[in-house]
Write a protein that binds this DNA or RNA. Structure first.
Lengths: 160, 160
DNA sequence: TATTTACAGGACCAATCCAGTCCGATATTC
DNA sequence: GAATATCGGACTGGATTGGTCCTGTAAATA
């Protein structure tokens, strides 16, 4: 699978939604969970939970009380997909030993460990290059997705 | 997390072990599950289960009966990490909608879908470039891991 | 042919993890 | 002080996963 948890997936959608919202209404008043939930048709408790985590991790800034809500902590060009994933589900690493060294009994004489570190690094690099701005942009249908500095054209993308 | 399941992790270790074993004993007689389990200190039922799947997916060739066992279906240079992951846990895709389209209710007006396809493509590409031979090689300690055509030096790899 | 070895396939269970809900506390506005 | 929102954490039902086990079948050997 190599899947993101569903909450993480939602989280990125929410971040993109917030970016979009901020781009439109240039007033920088915060966006509250209820509205965001309605606009994305996601259950409020879920949205609430996710936005809380994102705020705790420093990707969003929260404002309590009436007229409170959330705003992006940085501009979308400076928030990477890797950061969002990291915020929502911890360090990115395909194997246990990359993330929690010492858990695996046979870490000592494991022959594939070092290569895995390189692989994880490569994946992190890939996810780090893609920014929130790339997701939230006003992608005209059928156009090339403006994946800054990734050098991939949408037309290359076919199923594996 | 973006983790592999533990069985997949084991599976790749097993593949690397088989590659190593074949490289040493140039006779191409099959390697049975019991021996492999002993040498990797993994429980036999687990090893057995994993090797079975790998064989069913065509990455290993199985030979039944006495003196039976498993051999690599191709040379290590022609088996990618992406293939092994795919064999053990299905299509590689970070989000649900990339793998099982139509499951997500709001697929229609989802603004991040197209970018996700590009991201998944990039990750798949990364994992596809790394071969079993890169994992199983006689990596001299401290040396550069010979990650063919990935262009990453081990010395660049630091924790995120 | 009988026996042994080894894979094939699938059922099964315990434990863990995850999605989603809910609640009381706190901060802010009016 | 009333209304609005976030904060933090507890809680639960359900799905997923790790791991075991059992029966069947194929091949080799004596």
């Amino acid at each position: 699978m190599v899947r993101l948890s569903r909450l993480t997936d939602y989280g990125i959608v929410l971040m993109a939604h917030l970016a979009e919202r901020e781009r439109r209404s240039d007033s920088s008043s915060p966006h509250n969970a209820r509205e965001v939930a309605e606009e994305t048709s996601l259950p409020l408790p879920v949205v609430s939970k996710i936005l809380k985590s994102l705020a705790r991790q420093g990707l969003l800034v929260s404002q309590r009380g009436a007229k409170g809500g959330y705003t992006l902590a940085r501009i979308p060009e400076q928030i990477s997909v890797a950061e969002m994933i990291h915020a929502l589900e911890g360090p990115i690493g395909l194997t246990e030993c990359t993330v929690h060294p010492g858990q695996c009994v046979q870490e000592e004489n494991c022959h594939v460990r070092e290569p895995w570190q390189v692989i994880n690094y490569a994946v992190r690099q890939t996810l780090g290059r893609i920014k929130l701005a790339d997701l939230a942009g006003p992608a005209a249908p059928g156009s090339t997705v403006p994946l800054s500095s990734l050098g991939v054209d949408i037309t290359d993308v076919v199923e594996s």
